[in-house]
Amino acid sequence: MSISREEVEKVSLLGRLLLGPGELEKMTSQMGQILDYMHLLSEVDTENVEPMAHALDLTNVLRDDTPGVSLPRDEALAAAPHRDDECFLVPAVLGDP
């Protein structure tokens, strides 16, 4: 197995995923299988291959610094589960990130 139960626990915490009873074991096993499969790549000889930064062979896609139209506030807030007239509302956040 290429991933431990502790690692899956940590990743689920970072991803803010609450894994129910049995799910942790299931995830550990499934993620392990995925990682084992990906491990096939390590059999390829990459000695003289430049690391790839992007799948597309494109660079320098840039736009001009010209303002466009923003969303009306009501539309921006439309999908929020909680909101007031101006803002998104979230459970109280204490302190800075």
């Binding site: 736009r63 610094d65 010209t66 303002p67 466009g68 139209v69 923003s70 969303l71 506030r73 921006a76 807030l77 101006e86 803002c87 998104f88």
Partner: peptide, 26 residues
């Protein structure tokens, strides 16, 4: 800059909350 890094919403300071957003930056 006049606009945001990845979309054309204005960066002007002091606008009323949530009036300078678009589907990308939210």
């Amino acid at each position: 800059t006049r606009t945001k890094l990845f979309c054309s919403c204005s960066t002007q300071f002091g606008a009323p909350p949530n009036t300078q957003t678009c589907p990308l930056c939210i």
